[in-house]
Every structure is written in structure tokens, then in C-alpha cells.
């Protein structure tokens, strides 16, 4: 007898649980969409929304999304220097203040870069400080990433 009751209880508990889960999913979903209506729109919109708010993940002083060194005026550089080409073309380079200035002037004269107004000096300051020239000499040591046994 006791055994039978136990069996019934087990048979009932599954549909009840399932029902509860469904309710939770439905309300959870409605709640999520209510607070985040853009999820129902196209992918581009989602991307653009994030664009407006900016993502700020910094790890070890590096802005993860772009690879830029975190420092004063970094946001200006992101806003002005990553729409035509990726940040990688900027961060690969090392130049003096004069060199960065000349590069910006070249892009303005030949590559459709817009006038940077009063932000120009700030951008150049950031670039020359964080991406200044390194001295390499006439030939550097060979950098061996990994020694391996040659069979």
C-alpha cells in the first residue's frame, strides 16, 4: 500500500515540475524582453546599442576589445581611429609625436580622415606616449618562441 502511494507521488511530481519550469521560462522571458526590448530586433541594432554605451573591459591595462593601452584619451582614439581600419593598424606602429602627426596629416590629405580639432593634440599625446618609437639597433637578437627537439 505504502509502496503504491509512493509510486503515485513519483508519477505526479514530474509533470508538476515540468509545468513549473515552463511558467518560469515564460515569465522570465517576458521580464527579460520587457527590460531589454531590443533583443527582438535585428542583430545590427543590438550591436549598435552596445556601440552607444561602449564596452569597457580592461585587463592588465589593455582595452580588450581593441588592444589599446588604457590611458588618458584612449576613448578619443577609439572613436576616431577605428572606423576605417581596425585598431591593429594603429597598435602595430611606433612613432614619435612628429611621426604620428605626419601620419594623421597624411590620412587627412589622402585617405578621407576628418579634422580632429582640439582632440588632435590629445590623440597625438596618447599615441606618442603609448606607441612611441622603440630602439632596435641595426639587428635584434632572434626571438625563439619555443625550442623543440628536431627528429
Amino acid at each position: 500500500m505504502d509502496d503504491n502511494l509512493e509510486k503515485h507521488r513519483k508519477q505526479l511530481i514530474r509533470p508538476i515540475l515540468l509545468f513549473l519550469v515552463l511558467i518560469l521560462l515564460l515569465f522570465g522571458g517576458l521580464f527579460y524582453v520587457k527590460h531589454n526590448p531590443k533583443i527582438l530586433q535585428s542583430t545590427e541594432t543590438v550591436v549598435t546599442k552596445s556601440f552607444e554605451e561602449g564596452e569597457e573591459e580592461i585587463v592588465d591595462g589593455i582595452h580588450i576589445e581593441t588592444g589599446f593601452v588604457e590611458d588618458e584619451h584612449m576613448q578619443l582614439v577609439i572613436q576616431n581611429c577605428t572606423s576605417c581600419h581596425s585598431a591593429k593598424l594603429v597598435t602595430q606602429n611606433h612613432m614619435s609625436e612628429e611621426g604620428w602627426k605626419a601620419t594623421i596629416k597624411w590620412m587627412q590629405e589622402t585617405q578621407n580622415l576628418w579634422g580632429l580639432g582640439e582632440n588632435e593634440t590629445k590623440i597625438i599625446t596618447y599615441l606618442a606616449k603609448n606607441y612611441g618609437p622603440e630602439t632596435k639597433g641595426r639587428r635584434e637578437n632572434i626571438e625563439v618562441i619555443e625550442w623543440y627537439e628536431l627528429k
Binding site: 545590427e44 552596445s50 556601440f51 572606423s83
Partner: peptide
Amino acid sequence: FANKAPNG
């Protein structure tokens, strides 16, 4: 770079 993608 999703945060820098231009609109559309």
C-alpha cells in the same frame, strides 16, 4: 569590436 561597428 562589436561595440565599434557602424550602424547597419
